[in-house]
């Protein structure tokens, strides 16, 4: 009977791939990737479709309703800086030039809010504070308090 043998290096390679994939995976959500969010979505659907997991989950009770807040890092910009260093040989003659480019992702907190496990609203803190939705505007101070204490 044929029995499949597993190479001794299979385990370490698999582990390395897993670590590599995790390191290269997204570290934030983007404006484009949150386009799928729709009012009334259940919490599990939101979790399944988000690029990353929430960094915090907070429950607040306001005006007789309980809301769950989840925080996600949202990429809002990216900047690139380039540094060039020179090495000098004898007589001050430059011998090597090293250029290093650093890309920095700038993120802000995206607050996703559920009511009865259904998606109610999402946005950055300022979006809550100036929301066109009167209910969201009314609970914005409570969200703000939690956000600032976080």
């Amino acid at each position: 009977m044929y029995q499949r043998k597993t190479a001794w290096w299979g385990g370490p390679v698999a582990l390395l791939c897993l670590v590599g994939l995790t390191a290269c995976g997204p570290q934030f959500v983007t404006y484009n990737s949150i386009g799928f969010l729709q009012k009334g979505m259940d919490q599990k659907t939101v979790h399944d479709n988000m690029d990353v997991s929430s960094t915090s989950m907070i429950t607040i009770t306001e005006q007789g309703h309980t809301y769950v807040l989840e925080y996600y890092p949202l990429q809002t910009a990216q900047t690139k800086t380039t540094n060039t260093t020179y090495s000098y040989g004898s007589f001050g003659v430059p011998t090597t030039r090293t250029t290093t480019t650093t890309i920095t992702d700038h993120t802000h907190t995206l607050i996703v809010m559920y009511q009865d496990r259904r998606l109610r609203y999402w946005g950055m803190m300022a979006d809550y504070s100036k929301s066109e939705d009167p209910e969201i505007l009314a609970i914005a101070p409570a969200v703000y308090q939690q956000f600032m204490n976080h």
Binding site: Y31, N32, G35, L37, Q38, K39, Y121, W122, G123, D133
Partner: peptide, 10 residues
């Protein structure tokens, strides 16, 4: 706005 802003509008 962004598509997500359309989706959350009242």
């Amino acid at each position: 706005g962004h598509p997500y802003e359309f989706n959350r509008y009242p």
